[in-house]
């Protein structure tokens, strides 16, 4: 198996290395990927069409809004799948072992006090990354992951139960569902306002702004939805994997 695998890998690798001759050279502004008019259109017009200086955010939440909506659904589904896979009856032997482990585990004083100071700062930074995604690198995915990481730090430095007291698994799944609801809901409001699904310029009838600023606000709204889902699912994944789906003990 090992030799067979090595042969297959070497042949594939050699073919790819040979094919690299035809790839564009590093940083070539005239390569097909950079010349194609979709990319140029985004660079030249995304600010004029959405009033968002960060082109990545504009493309993510507006031009490719459908893609991002279902990307968020994929993350939600992954979280649900992990819960469904790991949840099950608890083995008696495992439960006894867990009980003895829990007694042995103590919270480290320095670790606990440091993370007590760090967690609020990390969460504040996460909110900044979400809200400032229009003007600097950031947005729902990045901010959501940072927020989820702060909860994971809480679970690591104290006990898993400490983090679960604040965000229980049920709450996490509900928050994740609310995130998708916000995203799809904004799309639906656009429909009601007379536009297409996720066509944020239709939101101008609800806001005292023009069609282009309405797009900017719509993007912020869906980014918040994405952040809810990503943060909640990241924590739910950690809580399930670290406790073998039992929500007790943890690392």
């Amino acid at each position: 198996m090992k030799t067979l695998g090595a042969i297959a890998v070497i042949i594939t690798g050699a073919l790819l290395l040979y094919a690299s001759e035809d790839f564009p050279s590093w940083g070539d502004p005239h390569s097909p990927a950079n010349q194609y008019r979709v990319s140029s259109h985004y660079v030249q017009n995304s600010f004029g069409e959405t009033s968002v200086p960060n082109m990545v955010t504009a493309i993510l939440a507006d031009y490719r809004g459908y893609d991002t909506l279902f990307e968020t659904v994929v993350i939600f589904t992954a979280g649900i799948a992990i819960i469904a896979i790991l949840r099950g009856p608890i083995d008696k032997r495992v439960r006894l072992r867990l009980a003895s482990e829990r007694k042995m585990r103590e919270t480290n004083l320095i670790l606990a006090q440091t993370s007590r100071i760090l967690v609020p700062v990390i969460q504040l930074f996460a909110l900044y990354v979400i809200a400032h995604g229009h003007h600097s690198p950031g947005g729902g995915f990045q901010g959501g992951v940072i927020f989820g990481a702060s909860l994971i730090l809480l679970a690591l430095s104290f006990q898993l139960q400490t983090a679960l007291d604040r965000v229980s698994e049920k709450k996490a799944v509900t928050l994740a569902a609310i995130g998708i609801l916000i995203y799809a809901g904004i799309g639906f409001v656009c429909l009601l306002a007379g536009g297409n699904f996720l066509d944020y310029s239709a939101l101008q009838v609800l806001m005292p702004v023009g069609a282009i600023e309405a797009r900017s606000h719509g993007i912020l709204g869906v980014e918040i939805g994405v952040a809810f889902t990503v943060a909640a699912i990241m924590f739910a994944i950690y809580a399930n994997l670290s406790s073998h789906g039992r929500m007790k003990g943890g690392l």
Binding site: S39, Y42, V56, I59, E71, I75, G139, F141, Q142, V145
Partner: peptide
Amino acid sequence: ANPLPHVLMLTAIVV
């Protein structure tokens, strides 16, 4: 820089 590959990979990382 071309923003399109950045967008595609942003979602790919989280997924």
